[in-house]
Simulated assay, not measured.
Amino acid sequence: MIKPAVTLALVVAALLLTGCSRPETPQSVTESFWQAVIAGDAEQAAELSTLVNEGAYDAFERDWQAATVTYGRVVIEGDTASVDIVVQGLPQAPADGLEATTHLVQVNQQWQVDYYRTGDSLSSGTGLQRFMGRLEALSKDLSQRFEQQSDQAAQDMEAMARELERLAQTANERLEILMDEYSQLLEETLEDLSRSMEEALKQHPDASAEDKRTLNQAVLELEQQRDQLRDADLQAVAEGSQVLAQTGQALDGLGQEFSAERQQWQQTLSRWHQRSSELLAQLQGDRQP
C-alpha cells in the first residue's frame, strides 16, 4: 500500500514536471501563447515568442480581459508555420470576431510565435506601416546637428560595407589578420549593443509600442548577425556592418525616454566607426599593388 505522503509527493512531482514542460508543436505553442496574452502574463508571452524579453511586450495595444480565441487551420512549411485564429471579445472588434493568423518560426529547434508579424495580422497591416513610417522619418524628433552626424555616420558605414564586399576578391595572410581583427571588433559591438538594448526594454516598460518594436527588432537583427560571424567570411562581415548602420538610423526615431541610452548607443557606434575606419584604411593600403 502506498502511503499518503508518498502519493502526495508523486502528485506534486508530476505537476512540477508538467509545469516545466514547454509546448513543442505550432498548435500547442499558439494556444499557450494566447492563453498567456489573455492572462496578462508578459513573461510567458515573451518566452513563447520572438520578443527578446517581457519588457518588449505591449499586449498588441489591446485589452484582452474579455477575449477568447478559437483555432483553425495549421500550416507547417519547413521552419515556419501559421495557425488561423478567431478572436472574440476585443473592444472595437467585429461582432462576429476578429480573424487573424498566428505566425511562428522555429528557432533553435523550438517553435516561437513571430510576435510582430502576428500583431500585423491582427491590425491588418497598419502596425507594419506605422513602423516603416517611423523608420523613414529617422531623426525627426532630434536636433538638426545630431541628425546630420548620425546620417553621415550611417553613410560612412554603408560605404565601408561596400568596400568590404569589393575586398572579397582579394586574400592574403595580412588581409586575413586584419579581417579577423575587424570581425572581432564587429562582433563585440553587436553584442554590446544587443545586451544594452535588452536592458533598456526592461527599464522602460511604459515605452510606446513602436519604440518597443524598434528595439526588439534591432536586438534580433544584431544577435542574428553576431551568430553569423562565428563562421565569418567577408560577406558576413559586410552584412554585419550594414546592420550596424541601419541600427544607428533606427535608433534616431526612439522617444525621449530613451535619450540617455540613445546617446550611449551612438557613442558605441562612433567608437566602432572610428576603429573600423582605421582597420579599413589598412585593408585598402595592403590591397594596393
Rank of each mutant, 00 (worst) to 15 (best):
M1W: 04
A5Q: 12
T18M: 06
T18R: 04
P23C: 04
P26D: 11
Q35W: 03
D41R: 06
A42H: 07
A46G: 12
E47H: 13
S49V: 12
D58Y: 00
A59Q: 11
E61W: 02
R62W: 06
R62S: 12
Q65M: 03
T70S: 15
V75R: 14
D79L: 08
A81P: 09
A81T: 12
S82M: 13
D84H: 09
L90A: 04
A93L: 03
D96R: 03
V107L: 05
Q109L: 05
D114S: 13
G119W: 03
G119S: 05
G119H: 01
L122G: 10
E136N: 11
L138R: 15
S139A: 15
K140P: 00
K140V: 14
Q144M: 06
R145L: 05
A159E: 06
M160G: 06
A161S: 15
R162Q: 14
L164Q: 14
E165R: 15
L167Q: 14
E176K: 14
D180T: 15
L190S: 04
S194W: 11
E198R: 15
E199V: 14
H204C: 07
A207K: 11
S208F: 10
D211I: 09
A218Y: 03
V219Q: 09
R230V: 09
A232E: 10
A232T: 13
L234Y: 01
E239M: 12
S241Y: 06
V243T: 10
L244H: 02
L254W: 08
L254R: 09
S277D: 03
L283C: 12
Q284G: 07
P289I: 02
